[in-house]
Design a protein around this nucleic acid. Sequence first.
DNA 1: GTGATTGCAAATCTTTTGCACTAAA
DNA 2: TTTAGTGCAAAAGATTTGCAATCAC
Lengths: 144, 144
Amino acid sequence: MIGNRPFSHALERLKRHGLRPTRQRLALVKLLFDRGDRHVTADQLQGEAAAAGVRVSLATIYNTLNQFTAAGVLREVIVEAGRSYFDTNTSDHHHVLIESTGELFDVPADHVKLTALPALPPGTSLRRVDVILRVSRQQDNPAS
Amino acid sequence: MIGNRPFSHALERLKRHGLRPTRQRLALVKLLFDRGDRHVTADQLQGEAAAAGVRVSLATIYNTLNQFTAAGVLREVIVEAGRSYFDTNTSDHHHVLIESTGELFDVPADHVKLTALPALPPGTSLRRVDVILRVSRQQDNPAS
DNA sequence: GTGATTGCAAATCTTTTGCACTAAA
DNA sequence: TTTAGTGCAAAAGATTTGCAATCAC
């Protein structure tokens, strides 16, 4: 029952958000969501589309990623200076970043216990708490 | 006794890190460190330099910010997609980001209690834990 | 002097945008 | 048809780099 219905799955996901199921969007949705939780950059996603034989322009990739992020279907993760990651896991969770490679891993929310938070600036409300564990491969030289 | 020795302060800080005290670097160090903890972008810092009557090219601003970050005198804070902040506070602490304005505030390390952390990926060691509280001004409309 | 530092302009990289063309409803 | 979506190429921003001129030692 579960799995093996990639087409209807992708189609439903688009319709649910009022997006026309075009050839490009269907392909991107499949690439994004048929493989479990992932973190992709626009560039990576275009590479995967090309590898899958789907021609999609970078502009459309960006448009789609932004539309999905606005709709709450993707989540943008900002951990590196010049580049945005898009996370297919939109539930409450955190991240481990391997600094030398840029690899990102999810950390389930309940694996991090935040038992105290500071007072917020007056007139503001909390939207989200991001915890990022920056790690290096053990043999890495910080100065290299 | 404290304060009012901006020149020697800046000079010492440069010498300590083996950087020649050029006119530009002395001016930037003063702008950065004579005013308590701050978060600046390269662009902002150039604006301040200009306002102070010091002509420094953007390339030199970037070079200096990067040299200082490498030396551990500044810390790079990555919380927004296209832009890097440089933090004069290099001690263990976290941040509040007001999403609508890009304003950053320090959160002392002891105002956040992390009582549990996940297992790290095999072969990695923890470099730093960043906690970012993303807040909005209360009247902000998330969809606007 | 000699090597480090600077500034400019050009280059790079990621992301966005304008607009004519195409496809979905 | 009518409107949304796509792709291209150009534009926009932030940051880096090559190289000749300048400065610190």
